[in-house]
């Protein structure tokens, strides 16, 4: 068997899964399982949210080690499912290495949903969560419109390849601006807080902080701490965006918080 090829296959699987938002323990497990098909004595992998390290060693071969830095991440659970399924079939011996590698290359390019569906989904999602937390129909409509605007500006900013931090600040201030205009000037909507909270649902890191704590409890400290840091930075950037616009507005009103 071609060990180098197998190793590349394992690393590429790990990279695709990690980049698409899989848990680090799942990525480690998958890489180990793929490498273990060689029956070599040393099979080791170490995965953090920003990189993959893996080693394969035996008396019969030269040691292979690999470091892979993973940069931009975009959550794509479909890719995780497909890569996972492929590796499972490979480990069960259903398909050959060459075949698996080619299929993996195809999984790498599985498209996301088109932008207009994303915009629609974010708007509807934000609107629904305003209702979940106790808003009424008018709140839902306002939140939905804010969600559409937010998603569009995100699509635009992503084309410019800006920092995530910057993107969230802009998103937060956009939410606050539209919410203030519609609530205080156009007099639409009944709960200002619910409109803001519903609109920030696509941005805030609730799942991230939960996964961080889960990683820490499981003993993946590095990945847990970096996810927690990620969550706090995202929350901070959204809060700075929303907070600064609200503060400006209250200053403009004469410092009277409403």
């Amino acid at each position: 068997m071609d060990h180098k090829k197998l190793f590349n296959y394992a690393i590429l699987t790990g990279e695709i899964m990690l980049r698409s938002g899989a848990e680090t323990s799942r990525v480690e497990d998958t890489i180990n399982r793929i490498l273990a098909t060689t029956k070599f004595t040393t099979v080791e992998s170490f995965v953090t949210p920003t990189g993959i390290f893996a080693t394969l060693d035996d008396d019969t071969i030269d040691m292979i080690s690999f470091v892979k830095r993973v940069h931009r991440r975009e959550i794509h659970l479909n890719r995780v499912a497909m890569a996972n399924d492929l590796s499972r079939r490979f480990c069960a011996g259903v398909i050959e290495l060459e075949d698996a590698y080619n299929q993996l290359e195809a999984i790498k390019d599985v498209p996301s949903y088109p932008n207009w569906i994303m915009v629609l989904a974010k708007g509807i999602g934000a609107g629904s969560f305003a209702v979940v937390f106790g808003g009424d129909v008018i709140d839902m409509c306002v939140t939905m419109i804010i969600g559409f605007a937010l998603a569009m500006i995100q699509v635009f900013l992503r084309k410019l390849d800006t920092l995530k931090f910057f993107e969230d600040i802009i998103g937060g201030s956009l939410i606050a601006t539209i919410a203030i205009v519609s609530f205080y000037y156009l007099k639409i909507g009944s709960n200002f807080d619910l409109i803001v909270i519903g609109s920030i649902m696509p941005l805030v890191p609730g799942v991230a902080i939960t996964n961080a704590i889960r990683d820490i409890i499981q003993g993946d400290f590095i990945s847990g701490m970096s996810r927690a840091a990620d969550a706090f930075i995202i929350a901070a950037s959204v809060a700075v965006g929303v907070g600064s616009i609200l503060k400006l507005f209250y200053l403009y009103l004469g410092g009277a918080p409403i």
Partner: peptide
């Protein structure tokens, strides 16, 4: 998940 809670934490710090 406490998305809104995380936001409020940082919002009140700001």
């Amino acid at each position: 998940v406490p998305g809104a809670g995380m936001y409020k934490t940082l919002y009140y710090i700001v």
